[in-house]
């Protein structure tokens, strides 16, 4: 028995099932990161002093640019699906994955520098919340990279059998990827600049 509205949109709601699902998932993610940002605010208000300028703003700026660019290539990958250009789709999705990897590598250098000079989570509440927030965000980036790699590699077989459904999948993966990008856009000023 086929489940309806996997490929086409239900007329009343105007969306297909997975799109409704991903928006709900992102709503729960907002609550997850919302709770952590709240924690940040509470800890900072309660702290007698709050460290400034201990993080590498230059690296983080580069990372912000990297993630924003990856969001653009993600949209291009979806647009290429819509224009039925599979080669371009592969190129853009590949770029998205590579940019995600670049972000993670830069983050790795930041982390190892901190660990090297003894800035570990237990040093103070600032580093505690810094590592928790960026670590959880990093896991989200990694998750997105794994999903995107699947669609770039073995998952792309669906392009031949069910191109519309595959395009839907890329759209949904894209929504998630933009969310991960958006979280970073909030994290960057909160942790590095303010």
């Amino acid at each position: 028995m086929e489940i309806p509205y996997v490929v086409t949109a239900r007329p009343e709601t105007g969306i297909f099932n997975a799109k409704a699902g991903i928006w709900l998932f992102l709503a729960s993610e907002v609550m997850l990161f919302g709770a952590l940002f709240t924690t940040y605010i509470l800890l900072r208000i309660g702290a007698p002093t709050w460290p400034h300028g201990e993080l590498d703003v230059a690296l983080a700026t580069v990372n912000t640019a990297v993630l924003i660019t990856s969001s653009i290539t993600m949209v291009m990958a979806w647009a290429s699906c819509l224009t039925k250009d599979f080669k371009k789709f592969r190129l853009y999705l590949g770029l998205t994955i590579l940019l995600g990897a670049t972000f993670m590598v830069i983050k790795y250098f930041e982390y190892s520098h901190h660990f090297h000079i003894g800035d570990i989570p237990s040093k103070n509440t600032f580093y505690a919340i810094y590592f928790t927030l960026t670590g959880l965000h990093g896991l989200h980036v990694l998750g997105g990279m794994i999903v995107n790699s699947y669609f770039w590699g073995p998952g792309s077989k669906m392009w031949k059998s069910e191109p519309v459904r595959f395009t839907n999948r890329i759209e949904v993966a894209g929504l998630y990827w933009h969310f991960v990008d958006l979280v970073w856009i909030f994290l960057f000023p909160t942790l590095y600049l303010l």
Binding site: L24, A27, S28, E29, M31, L32, F33, G34, A35, L36, T39
Partner: peptide
């Protein structure tokens, strides 16, 4: 469940 559980996950 969708909106109340994530803050506990954060906690």
């Amino acid at each position: 469940l969708l909106l109340a559980f994530p803050p506990l996950e954060a906690a």
